[in-house]
Protein backbone atom coordinates (compact mmCIF):
# COMPACT_ATOMS: atom_id res chain seq x y z
CA UNK A 1 0.00 0.00 0.00
CA UNK A 2 1.08 3.57 -0.52
CA UNK A 3 1.21 4.47 3.24
CA UNK A 4 3.46 1.49 3.92
CA UNK A 5 5.71 2.34 0.98
CA UNK A 6 5.90 5.92 2.21
CA UNK A 7 6.93 4.73 5.69
CA UNK A 8 9.65 2.46 4.29
CA UNK A 9 11.07 5.16 2.07
CA UNK A 10 10.89 7.88 4.73
CA UNK A 11 12.37 5.91 7.64
CA UNK A 12 14.43 3.09 6.17
CA UNK A 13 15.82 4.41 2.89
CA UNK A 14 17.96 7.15 4.55
CA UNK A 15 19.44 4.59 7.00
CA UNK A 16 20.14 2.17 4.16
CA UNK A 17 21.75 4.88 2.04
CA UNK A 18 23.84 6.14 4.96
CA UNK A 19 25.35 2.67 5.39
CA UNK A 20 26.41 2.50 1.72
CA UNK A 21 29.92 3.73 1.23
CA UNK A 22 30.70 4.58 -2.40
CA UNK A 23 28.92 1.47 -3.59
CA UNK A 24 27.96 2.87 -6.95
CA UNK A 25 26.71 -0.42 -8.38
CA UNK A 26 24.18 -0.86 -5.58
CA UNK A 27 23.16 2.80 -5.86
CA UNK A 28 22.63 2.38 -9.60
CA UNK A 29 20.59 -0.80 -9.07
CA UNK A 30 18.51 0.92 -6.40
CA UNK A 31 17.81 3.82 -8.79
CA UNK A 32 16.64 1.35 -11.43
CA UNK A 33 14.31 -0.35 -8.93
CA UNK A 34 12.81 2.96 -7.82
CA UNK A 35 12.20 4.10 -11.41
CA UNK A 36 10.91 0.85 -12.88
CA UNK A 37 7.07 0.79 -12.79
CA UNK A 38 7.31 -3.02 -12.57
CA UNK A 39 8.77 -2.64 -9.05
CA UNK A 40 5.41 -1.55 -7.74
CA UNK A 41 2.90 -4.38 -7.37
CA UNK A 42 -0.23 -2.35 -7.88
CA UNK A 43 -1.04 -0.17 -10.91
CA UNK A 44 -2.02 2.56 -8.51
CA UNK A 45 1.57 2.77 -7.33
CA UNK A 46 3.14 3.28 -10.72
CA UNK A 47 5.10 6.47 -10.38
CA UNK A 48 6.39 7.67 -13.70
CA UNK A 49 5.23 7.70 -17.31
CA UNK A 50 7.82 6.65 -19.90
CA UNK A 51 8.15 9.10 -22.78
CA UNK A 52 7.53 7.41 -26.14
CA UNK A 53 7.36 8.91 -29.67
CA UNK A 54 3.58 8.32 -29.49
CA UNK A 55 3.34 10.26 -26.23
CA UNK A 56 5.39 13.17 -27.63
CA UNK A 57 3.27 13.27 -30.77
CA UNK A 58 0.12 13.28 -28.63
CA UNK A 59 1.50 16.18 -26.53
CA UNK A 60 2.28 18.19 -29.67
CA UNK A 61 -1.23 17.57 -31.02
CA UNK A 62 -2.71 18.68 -27.70
CA UNK A 63 -0.59 21.86 -27.75
CA UNK A 64 -1.73 22.63 -31.31
CA UNK A 65 -5.33 22.43 -30.11
CA UNK A 66 -4.92 24.71 -27.08
CA UNK A 67 -6.90 27.43 -28.90
CA UNK A 68 -10.02 25.30 -28.47
CA UNK A 69 -9.73 25.16 -24.70
CA UNK A 70 -11.66 27.63 -22.53
CA UNK A 71 -9.96 30.09 -20.18
CA UNK A 72 -10.73 28.15 -17.00
CA UNK A 73 -9.02 25.00 -18.27
CA UNK A 74 -6.09 26.99 -19.66
CA UNK A 75 -5.50 28.65 -16.30
CA UNK A 76 -5.59 25.22 -14.64
CA UNK A 77 -3.07 23.79 -17.14
CA UNK A 78 -0.74 26.73 -16.51
CA UNK A 79 -1.05 26.24 -12.74
CA UNK A 80 0.02 22.62 -13.07
CA UNK A 81 3.02 23.64 -15.19
CA UNK A 82 4.30 26.06 -12.57
CA UNK A 83 3.41 23.70 -9.71
CA UNK A 84 0.93 26.08 -8.10
CA UNK A 85 -1.92 24.49 -6.17
CA UNK A 86 -5.25 26.09 -5.42
CA UNK A 87 -8.68 25.04 -4.26
CA UNK A 88 -11.04 24.46 -7.19
CA UNK A 89 -13.59 27.26 -7.41
CA UNK A 90 -16.92 27.32 -9.14
CA UNK A 91 -16.26 30.56 -10.94
CA UNK A 92 -13.15 32.11 -12.34
CA UNK A 93 -12.89 35.11 -14.64
CA UNK A 94 -9.49 35.51 -16.23
CA UNK A 95 -8.87 38.64 -18.28
CA UNK A 96 -9.89 37.68 -21.79
CA UNK A 97 -7.35 40.06 -23.32
CA UNK A 98 -4.57 37.88 -21.90
CA UNK A 99 -5.86 34.66 -23.47
CA UNK A 100 -3.50 34.65 -26.47
CA UNK A 101 -0.59 35.42 -24.19
CA UNK A 102 -1.57 32.59 -21.83
CA UNK A 103 -1.74 30.08 -24.69
CA UNK A 104 1.74 31.10 -25.81
CA UNK A 105 3.13 30.83 -22.27
CA UNK A 106 1.66 27.34 -21.83
CA UNK A 107 3.10 26.19 -25.19
CA UNK A 108 6.51 27.67 -24.41
CA UNK A 109 6.64 26.12 -20.92
CA UNK A 110 5.67 22.68 -22.24
CA UNK A 111 8.27 22.82 -25.02
CA UNK A 112 10.98 23.92 -22.59
CA UNK A 113 10.18 20.98 -20.28
CA UNK A 114 10.12 18.53 -23.23
CA UNK A 115 13.53 19.79 -24.39
CA UNK A 116 14.96 19.03 -20.95
CA UNK A 117 13.45 15.55 -20.46
CA UNK A 118 16.05 13.28 -18.89
CA UNK A 119 16.11 9.52 -18.56
CA UNK A 120 13.06 9.14 -20.81
CA UNK A 121 10.38 9.83 -18.19
CA UNK A 122 7.68 12.47 -18.15
CA UNK A 123 8.32 15.22 -15.60
CA UNK A 124 5.45 15.37 -13.09
CA UNK A 125 4.38 18.95 -13.86
CA UNK A 126 4.11 18.34 -17.59
CA UNK A 127 2.30 15.03 -17.00
CA UNK A 128 -0.26 16.71 -14.73
CA UNK A 129 -0.70 19.66 -17.10
CA UNK A 130 -1.33 17.37 -20.07
CA UNK A 131 -3.77 15.35 -17.95
CA UNK A 132 -5.75 18.57 -17.45
CA UNK A 133 -5.97 19.00 -21.23
CA UNK A 134 -7.04 15.39 -21.57
CA UNK A 135 -9.71 15.79 -18.88
CA UNK A 136 -11.09 18.88 -20.62
CA UNK A 137 -11.48 17.05 -23.94
CA UNK A 138 -13.09 14.11 -22.16
CA UNK A 139 -15.58 16.49 -20.60
CA UNK A 140 -16.21 18.44 -23.80
CA UNK A 141 -16.64 15.41 -26.09
CA UNK A 142 -18.53 13.49 -23.41
CA UNK A 143 -16.40 10.44 -23.79
CA UNK A 144 -14.36 8.52 -21.27
CA UNK A 145 -12.58 6.80 -24.16
CA UNK A 146 -11.31 9.91 -25.89
CA UNK A 147 -7.73 8.94 -25.24
CA UNK A 148 -6.30 5.64 -24.17
CA UNK A 149 -3.08 7.51 -23.63
CA UNK A 150 -2.70 8.48 -20.00
CA UNK A 151 -0.09 11.10 -19.20
CA UNK A 152 0.03 10.70 -15.44
CA UNK A 153 -0.41 7.51 -13.39
CA UNK A 154 -3.19 8.75 -11.12
CA UNK A 155 -4.19 6.37 -8.36
CA UNK A 156 -7.34 4.32 -8.95
CA UNK A 157 -9.13 6.42 -6.32
CA UNK A 158 -8.23 9.69 -8.08
CA UNK A 159 -9.17 8.35 -11.52
CA UNK A 160 -12.50 7.17 -10.14
CA UNK A 161 -13.13 10.59 -8.56
CA UNK A 162 -12.32 12.31 -11.87
CA UNK A 163 -14.86 10.08 -13.63
CA UNK A 164 -17.48 10.83 -10.96
CA UNK A 165 -16.95 14.57 -11.44
CA UNK A 166 -17.21 14.20 -15.25
CA UNK A 167 -20.45 12.22 -14.89
CA UNK A 168 -21.84 14.88 -12.54
CA UNK A 169 -20.95 17.66 -14.99
CA UNK A 170 -22.64 15.81 -17.85
CA UNK A 171 -25.80 15.52 -15.76
CA UNK A 172 -25.99 19.27 -15.08
CA UNK A 173 -28.00 20.17 -18.21
CA UNK A 174 -30.65 17.60 -17.22
CA UNK A 175 -31.24 19.15 -13.81
CA UNK A 176 -34.64 20.67 -13.17
CA UNK A 177 -35.01 24.22 -11.96
CA UNK A 178 -35.68 23.13 -8.37
CA UNK A 179 -32.57 20.99 -8.27
CA UNK A 180 -30.49 23.90 -9.51
CA UNK A 181 -31.84 25.95 -6.63
CA UNK A 182 -30.51 23.31 -4.23
CA UNK A 183 -27.10 23.38 -5.90
CA UNK A 184 -26.65 27.10 -5.65
CA UNK A 185 -25.85 27.40 -1.93
CA UNK A 186 -23.31 24.58 -2.31
CA UNK A 187 -21.50 25.98 -5.34
CA UNK A 188 -21.92 29.65 -4.51
CA UNK A 189 -22.08 29.78 -0.68
CA UNK A 190 -21.40 33.50 -0.51
CA UNK A 191 -23.73 34.55 -3.35
CA UNK A 192 -21.74 36.68 -5.74
CA UNK A 193 -24.01 36.17 -8.71
CA UNK A 194 -27.57 36.98 -9.53
CA UNK A 195 -29.78 33.98 -10.28
CA UNK A 196 -29.45 34.36 -14.05
CA UNK A 197 -25.69 34.80 -13.85
CA UNK A 198 -25.46 31.64 -11.77
CA UNK A 199 -27.42 29.62 -14.30
CA UNK A 200 -25.41 31.02 -17.24
CA UNK A 201 -22.08 30.27 -15.59
CA UNK A 202 -23.27 26.79 -14.59
CA UNK A 203 -24.07 26.09 -18.25
CA UNK A 204 -20.44 26.80 -19.17
CA UNK A 205 -19.40 23.74 -17.26
Amino acid sequence: TRPLLREIVTYHLPCYLAKLDHEDVIMSELSEILINPGSYQSDSLSLVTPVSPLLLSSINQALDRLDGIPDQALVAVNRKLIGKTSMPKFWHVPRSSSRGHLIEIVRKRCKMIIARIEEGYMPKRLAKAMSMVNLYWKQKLRSMDISQLEYFPFSKETASLQNDVLNALWLLPKLQHDDLKLLRPILDPDPKFRKMQFRVSLRKY
Binding site: R2, L5, R6, V9, T10, L13, P14, L17, A18, L20, D24, M27, S28, L30, S31, E32, L34, I35, L47, V48, E118, E119, Y121, P123, K124
Partner: peptide, 18 residues
Protein backbone atom coordinates in the same frame (compact mmCIF):
# COMPACT_ATOMS: atom_id res chain seq x y z
CA UNK B 1 24.12 10.25 0.10
CA UNK B 2 20.67 10.51 -1.43
CA UNK B 3 22.07 12.71 -4.20
CA UNK B 4 23.77 9.64 -5.61
CA UNK B 5 20.38 8.32 -6.72
CA UNK B 6 19.53 9.23 -10.30
CA UNK B 7 17.13 12.11 -10.97
CA UNK B 8 14.38 9.70 -11.98
CA UNK B 9 14.81 7.75 -8.73
CA UNK B 10 14.71 10.96 -6.70
CA UNK B 11 11.50 11.90 -8.52
CA UNK B 12 10.03 8.53 -7.51
CA UNK B 13 11.09 9.02 -3.89
CA UNK B 14 9.57 12.53 -3.88
CA UNK B 15 6.32 11.15 -5.25
CA UNK B 16 6.17 8.32 -2.73
CA UNK B 17 6.58 10.62 0.27
CA UNK B 18 4.43 13.47 -1.06
Amino acid sequence: TINKLSNGALQSVAKIIS
